[in-house]
Design a protein around this nucleic acid. Sequence first.
DNA 1: GAGTGGTCTAGACCACCGC
DNA 2: CGGTGGTCTAGACCACTCG
Lengths: 263, 263
Amino acid sequence: MSTSLSPGLLGDLDPTSDRAVFRQIADHLREAIDRGRFREGEKLPSEAELVDHYGVSRMTVRNSFSLLTGEGLVHAEHGKGVFVRPRPPVRRLASDRFARRHREQGKSAFLVEADATGSHPTVDSLEVKEEKAGPDISARLGSVRRVLARRRRYLLDGRPVEFAVSYLPLDIARGTRIAEPNPGPGGIYARLEELGHRLDHFDEEIRARMPSPTEVKTLQLAPGVPVISLLRTAYDTEERAVEVCDTVMAADAYVLSYRLPAT
Amino acid sequence: MSTSLSPGLLGDLDPTSDRAVFRQIADHLREAIDRGRFREGEKLPSEAELVDHYGVSRMTVRNSFSLLTGEGLVHAEHGKGVFVRPRPPVRRLASDRFARRHREQGKSAFLVEADATGSHPTVDSLEVKEEKAGPDISARLGSVRRVLARRRRYLLDGRPVEFAVSYLPLDIARGTRIAEPNPGPGGIYARLEELGHRLDHFDEEIRARMPSPTEVKTLQLAPGVPVISLLRTAYDTEERAVEVCDTVMAADAYVLSYRLPAT
DNA sequence: GAGTGGTCTAGACCACCGC
DNA sequence: CGGTGGTCTAGACCACTCG
């Protein structure tokens, strides 16, 4: 046993309350965190200390930790303790991130922005191959059966933040630089324009949800972190959909920003 | 005890595996759901049945349910069972939802869309009052100290889906129809334009995170459902920020859609 | 080795649901 | 009423971290 809790840091249980004991304990801890009594990255009292303080069983304490973990407030480290989750640096995506002027500078959107925030960007899990299009992708690309798929994972300072798959019709992409792992300066959008598909606009659909186990793995997501799912379709000036990009982002690493005209 | 599980529905545990038993059980259930062996709204085997089937203690089974609940895959109903969570109808927000032509038809954005999807829209918790601006809001509105705040909750077919607070500078809103609970046809944006603040554009910032306990309550969120947080700033043609709207949406009820120019 | 969280057991009593 | 999930206890053994 270690030192006992400083009194007054956490309140006492209310035995007359209907609220379950583990919820009351979670309330105490949540409030203490909100009030800054525990700061980002700081260690909470250990399970054993809370068992002593509240006079409850260990499972009850663990149950309240589990609540807070699900809320994304804290995270446990085996053998070390339970800590207040720090808010990671955030990547801001502006709505002009695909503007032609950026492409013409020869850098991809991801690299441009990472530079701006002073982080070190990396791309891995690169995979380019032809495959059968799922029904959703196929519909958006104009009922194509097979597509070129470009998969890659983006990391910032070594931390995975985003996984993306681009799908392109074979009649556009096959045999071009788009079908190579490194598509060259300005990325695939620059290549599409060189191929005569002058880009007109993008449609983006945004959803948020809890990640699948696979996504937890590839993005190394902490419990209680949702993902933002972004489905972007690129159209050329002839109104043809020339690419669909399916992106999954760690929600705690992103702020998406859009400008809407009022007219 | 009720009827035993149909054999083969769920596999057996792998005692040689390093994977914790409750995770293996969760894997089995998740896979069965993915394969459609349990459909939306359908009941999973009861805790007692799974205890029998796997020969584990009840807490172990509950632990695996807890995993799936956190993933937003299932939800428990006291006294009834654990059910596959149905995907609720979704509200699509298009990027032209604040276009002037819609305002001029006299309906608010929320009502227009709800009509389009055939759902019955409601607004409640209406509250309009003057208050001190938080630092974030103040900064966006040009360092105003006090603001008019308009709070309201949106429901679709009786289900709460969104909670929003609009903040407006007092020198614009005080004493106008904007300060009244019902701002009239076309909403506050129509009133702003009548007051000479012709709207030019909106900036929207989108985040996703797990909800606070308060948000769980006001939006009646099921466990494992994140929220989308949207902060919109409205600018008039003189580049003045005339409104900031802070919106929290149930993520399972929304798809946000934006159109970006490629230029 | 002492302290931490991770997993699991085998019970208990309760509250809610539907018949 | 029996079946369901909700809460809680009092242990046990393990794996990880750090001094």
